[in-house]
Design a protein around this nucleic acid. Sequence first.
DNA 1: GTCCTATACGTTAGCACTTACGTTAATGCT
DNA 2: AGCATTAACGTAAGTGCTAACGTATAGGAC
Lengths: 321, 321
Amino acid sequence: MYLASLGKLALGSRLKALSDHFYGAADEVYQTLGARIESRWLPVLRYLWDVGPRAVTEVADAIGQTHSAVSQLTDKLVREGMVHRRRDPNDGRRTVLVLTDKAHEALAELGPIWCAVRRGVTASLDEHAVQLLEAIDLCERALRERPIVNAILAEHAAIVKAPLEIVPYRPELREHFYRLNAQWLERYFRVEDIDRTVLSDPERYVLQPGGSIFFAKLGEEIIGTCALLQESPGVFELTKMGVDETFRGLGAGKRLLEACIAQFHRRAGHTLFLESNSSLKPALRMYEKAGFVFQPTIRPGSHYERADVYMIYQAPAKEPA
Amino acid sequence: MYLASLGKLALGSRLKALSDHFYGAADEVYQTLGARIESRWLPVLRYLWDVGPRAVTEVADAIGQTHSAVSQLTDKLVREGMVHRRRDPNDGRRTVLVLTDKAHEALAELGPIWCAVRRGVTASLDEHAVQLLEAIDLCERALRERPIVNAILAEHAAIVKAPLEIVPYRPELREHFYRLNAQWLERYFRVEDIDRTVLSDPERYVLQPGGSIFFAKLGEEIIGTCALLQESPGVFELTKMGVDETFRGLGAGKRLLEACIAQFHRRAGHTLFLESNSSLKPALRMYEKAGFVFQPTIRPGSHYERADVYMIYQAPAKEPA
DNA sequence: GTCCTATACGTTAGCACTTACGTTAATGCT
DNA sequence: AGCATTAACGTAAGTGCTAACGTATAGGAC
């Protein structure tokens, strides 16, 4: 499922789907077994059954809903003859909810069904059910202690005020080299075999032949990468430039490009070229601004299917003093 | 929270609450940070962003919702200027959803926020977040393979056709002795100190002085218990009778009572009495039917606060041959 | 007692979703 | 080609919840 790939961003949606699944399953069971109850009633009915008559707000607090929800559910339960409302003689504001005899009868028959539900859930989910329950429990508790919104806002503040750094390759960052490039390749083209090879083992195919890789780092997050490949002595290729599309506008591409060009100079290269595709307008503009010049033909013997643009770096004339 | 005590019976409710929590948190974050997006839009927008224009049904399948939901959400997204509808030229039935430039701009700014969400969730929930995601994942997968309703119905069929057995005490069943008695004590009275002592260590306080404990077992489930306590040589007390209230009507109480009386005879006791409370009408009727006779006074020197009924067993006259 | 504030709870409107239905277009069968 | 079936999708109605509001009562300050 696609939602799973969004991870923590789509927690709400996935939990809702699971929730609906369980509600639906429970109702199907109750109905086929002829139990006179619906899954949404269970928290209220079972609570009243366990602790006896209670006021609306007490029930709402116990089952974690608003008093409105309980009040409206009560309307329905009264229509169904499961509950009746009683004014509290000591406090005229309170409405005490009391189970009817019918409700007691209905609930007293539910033992085998509830038992089957517990066992069926276990049978269907193995220990995953236990794991899920535990996880829910821990999350509920954690969320009560550390409100999540504040945590997110704090992280955001830290991220936006963090400086953008350019860092050289380190083995721990290898996966980011793949991830950031695969992202745009998959979207605009497709991952060719040569891409997969180079991206999977950059140490062998980029660094060992005398090239370099740089990463753009924002706070703790790696948001972009770029490689300088030594094609032959003194001849370098700028390639594998990839910036997370959701981190655009922070100048990461420009900074990576500058880092590669600086490295090219340090290595005393005499030729720096790149291949790209004409549909990537913003990238091409950036290359041009940095000093790359469009060539009239594509590069002879290019390894890429998608390459229909060929550019060569022309060091800008020194500013007159 | 009360729902936690219901365990697998209230999975739906608890998941819904968590889901709402995350949706709410996300919206709060988006709003305070000025992102022009709502949490409910994310699956659709992000999917279109990832894979490009798609038809309504394709989106619905990907994000696990009905086409109606997507269609209605699209109405809103069109009003907000984030999406527009386009007829598919190759298939006049299909409506292709396309992100507008405004949507692209809005999404391109979200990197730092999404990043903060991921980090914030982690900060707030520690590894619980990972555990929760994993559990969700495993449950989603398990539910697709083994439909939960069938599993529950199968368990139910097994339970209702299982015979009701009466089994003697075994150490593994000790917790049930406590659970089944605490259930009704808490509901109708309160757990007195003497109860807690006896219930926690039945081997010492019931078995060692020469008593017995029986359990009613339905399938794999322990649904009732009853104890025969030796007060002094030949004098026995029937006590700690508890049947799960949701398993009433299966005759478990009667069967337990019979087992205790049979044991009393086997032990060649001469006196069998019990103490109870006048509010427990159905239980008293059952005792009477089994041969217990109301005594005019309460038992002298009773250990229980709640005891206001005293009954003594009178073996029924032998049937004439 | 009078007044003020807080509490309990019903009511309304709105939201996100579902199911059911109707319309239109594509597909398969003969 | 003609006709029934299937698929895509919008619309309407219903559900279960929330937020916001209104009303009645309780309880304290004076």
